[in-house]
Nucleic acid binder design. Structure first.
Length: 727
DNA sequence: GGGGACTCAAAG
DNA sequence: TTTGAGTCCCCG
């Protein structure tokens, strides 16, 4: 008997820390675990949740071996999900435990939800009948069970009436399943009438679902072409087949309108998953997704790591959106990992965008993704007429930033009682402050970029690293008072100009850093949709999928901004942003106009925006990328190592060049160029490492990380996805 | 002598 | 990633 338990059974367990692989734990006698089981294990001085992994427990010093404390009573993490974790870890050069940590992000969800106490009729009748008791009995005639409070509410009696009936055995207490977070969606609830284009596209998607197996599809349709309705049909079909569905959205916290549309189509809301969920809700959603009780989740990128019981479709809406990139700890692009997830789970993945990323277009061109085009706007929604305003010929008055032509257009719009949107992708009041006496420029002490003045907060802020300081009264270099000059506009400064020009108009600024946070922004967006504002001044936030039905003028204050900042994706980003923002106009068929203030009206990006010729943009950009060997072409431009100082970056670069041939191409970039990834925290320099094969680069980076353990913390590796090395 | 800030190694 | 231990420094 004693012998039976020796040697103890040992299993690998993935624990939430950056160890190179799973740790081994002993399984106490009588405990039943299987791969995927979520367990509580001792780890150093604490207890953590981990996932029993596949294979044998590695050989460890038996003295170190400790037993699993407990197996949680929740569904094991499915095989598909475990392969996905392994794949993501290998691809992103992160430790599997850190990826597993993303799966286990709902610590209280591993224990079953507490059952709710309910009551049900026993069949007995009360000795004495009263009016209140009669009402209760009528309502419960059908024999269904009720919660105590629910029943008291429904029958309009106090709970003590029900307690009395329980005491007389007219009702008995039962345990009810905890209530679902959301009702089950009904695929046949509110099917929309589709245009011919839309119907054809929907058929293609449904065929992919019927066929089964992995496939990635791209819905490529101009803004307003009704992509959402199209992929809703795919969602409906997957639901009919009994599969779960994940809809990924960038920044779901702001997309309340999406949830309404879903509800109109399916009769109930999808479950939400994003960082602003309350811990309680997070637990319930996680648990119910694992149990298969939730059929559709609409979530931010982290929803990709929910333990779906039977996922059968992923939609990635606005697939080009940079918000899909996670750039800390585990670096990944949720759009690409969604494709991988679908491949592992053998189901279709649908990407949707009006302005697909160049990578995705290349994938479509090469036949990896099936492209479905929606060329026209839906129903009466007409695309706005777009024009440039040449700022060399029609300059703004001195000290202002809006050209007379744009001011006039705003005036006309107000006169027609319609709304105008002025777009400038720059937060704050002025991007640079300088001293007119000595020429001093305010710079960030941490990362040497310019400090942006924010008048509302009365602060100078670094948009790079978050450093901020109070706005100064005097120049710190020469001490001169009243000679600090703001240079260039931010949205706050445009708002100042607008208020001066149109004092009677109702003006709203929409910028992610306005006080009040997400909640306030949501209210503001609602207010605008209801017509409670005349002029909206906004940063890129306004480009994102909000519907402003009465918006007939979009003015782009600086269409050139972002075209020349050294980022290899600058042209693409600008094209996407300007297409999306001008697409905000004319959603309900009113004649609408987009005006782009520019100093370079002949610039190819500006021209393709104005002419509406998307294809010329993609053709040209794909060609440029190919020439420059940038993503998604040629040599993988995929790995970025950030370091704190240039010397350190050079050290890393030397090491990499010394590493076994073929040595990769390495570029060292300062904060100003900063392409491909946001500089995180204190990291000021980055090496961009290019190589022939992903596996070579992975080798280099591993070596680098191993040889430079002292630099841990000052060294960050970022993987920029190379879509051609997938799968 | 104790507390705070910091670095380091270890966790099965 | 988290933790505890060790070290240094400062302080009536």
């Amino acid at each position: 008997m004693f012998e039976d338990s020796y040697p103890p059974r040992v299993v690998p367990v993935l624990v939430p820390m950056p160890a190179p692989g799973p740790y081994s734990y002993a399984v106490p006698e009588g405990m039943i675990v299987m791969p995927g089981s979520i367990v509580r294990v001792p780890l150093g001085p604490r207890q953590v949740a981990g996932i029993v992994w596949d294979g044998e427990g590695g050989d460890v010093n038996p003295k170190k071996l400790r037993p699993i404390t407990q197996v949680f009573q929740c569904p094991p993490v499915p095989e598909e999900m475990r392969r996905f974790v392994d794949w993501v870890a290998a691809y992103t050069l992160s430790r599997p435990g850190m990826v597993a940590r993303m799966v286990l992000r709902a610590p209280e969800a591993f224990e079953p939800e507490r059952a709710v106490e309910g009551v049900v009729r026993t069949g007995l009748v009360p000795e004495k009948m009263t009016a209140a008791r009669k009402r209760v009995l009528e309502i419960t005639e059908n024999g269904l069970s009720w919660t105590r409070s629910g029943l008291s509410h429904a029958s309009g009696v106090s709970t003590s009436v029900i307690d009395g009936l329980i005491a007389q055995n007219v009702f008995s207490r039962i345990e009810l399943q905890p209530p679902p977070v959301v009702a089950v969606p009904d695929p046949g609830y509110g099917a929309n009438a589709l245009s011919e284009d839309q119907a054809a596209a929907a058929e293609t998607l449904k065929a992919a679902i019927d066929k089964g197996g992995f496939q990635s599809l791209l819905i490529d349709g101009v803004t307003g072409s009704g992509k959402t309705e199209v992929y809703f049909e795919a969602v409906a079909r997957a639901l009919e087949k009994g599969r779960q569905v994940l809809i990924l959205l960038p920044e779901i916290a702001l997309t309340q309108a999406f949830l309404d549309r879903f509800e109109n189509r399916f009769g109930s809301r999808p479950a939400e998953w994003h960082s602003e969920l309350s811990p309680r809700m997070r637990e319930r959603v996680w648990r119910q997704v694992a149990e298969g009780r939730i059929r559709v989740v609409a979530g931010a990128r982290s929803a990709l790591f929910l333990p779906f019981e039977d996922l059968g479709l992923i939609i990635v809406d606005e697939e080009h959106d940079p918000a899909y990139k996670q750039e800390d700890r585990v670096f990944y692009n949720a759009r690409d990992m969604a494709v991988v997830r679908g491949h592992i789970g053998r189901f279709p993945v649908v990407l949707a965008s009006a302005t697909p990323s160049v990578e995705t277009r290349v994938n479509a061109q090469q036949g990896r993704y099936q492209r479905i085009e929606l060329a026209s706007r839906f129903a009466d929604a007409a695309l706005p007429t777009l024009k440039t305003i040449d700022m060399r010929k029609s300059p703004p008055a001195r000290g202002s930033f809006l050209s007379p032509a744009l001011v006039e257009a705003v005036q006309d719009t107000l006169a027609r009682k319609e709304q105008a949107l002025l777009f400038l992708n720059r937060r704050g009041y002025a991007p640079l402050t300088l001293c007119r006496v000595c020429g001093h420029r305010f710079q960030c002490p941490q990362c040497s970029s310019w400090l942006v003045e924010h008048r509302f907060r009365n602060q100078l802020m670094c948009h790079h690293c978050g450093h901020h300081e109070p706005s100064p009264e005097a120049c710190p270099a020469c001490g001169a008072l009243d000679h600090l000059a703001p240079c260039g506009p931010g949205v706050e400064r445009i708002a100042e100009e607008v208020v001066a020009q149109f004092p009677e108009a109702r003006t709203i600024i929409l910028s992610s850093d306005m006080p009040g946070g997400t909640k306030r922004l949501r209210l503001e967006l609602d207010a605008i949709a209801k017509g409670e504002a005349d002029i909206v001044i906004g940063t890129q936030l306004v480009a994102k999928g909000h519907n402003f039905p009465n918006m007939t003028l979009v003015g782009v204050v600086d269409a050139d901004l972002g075209l020349a900042n050294g980022d290899p994706r600058a042209a693409e980003r600008t094209f996407q942003l300007l297409s999306q923002v001008t697409g905000r106009a004319g959603r309900t068929g009113k004649k609408s106009v987009g005006l782009l203030q520019t100093y370079q009206p002949e610039h190819p990006v500006i021209r393709s925006i104005v002419s509406g010729d998307r294809e010329s943009f993609y053709a040209r950009e794909i060609g440029e990328r190919e020439k420059a060997m940038l993503p998604p072409f040629g040599r993988l431009a995929g790995i970025v190592v950030s370091a704190e100082t240039r010397a350190e970056a050079e050290g890393h670069a030397r090491q990499l060049r010394r590493a076994a041939p073929p040595a990769p191409d390495i570029a060292i970039l300062g904060p100003a160029e900063a392409p491909l990834a946001v500089l995180a925290g204190r990291h000021r320099f980055r090496l961009l490492v290019q190589g022939e094969k992903r596996s070579d680069l992975q080798g280099f980076i591993r070596q680098l990380l191993e040889r430079a353990p002292k630099e841990r913390g000052s060294l960050r590796v970022h993987v920029d996805i190379d879509p051609q090395s997938f799968l």
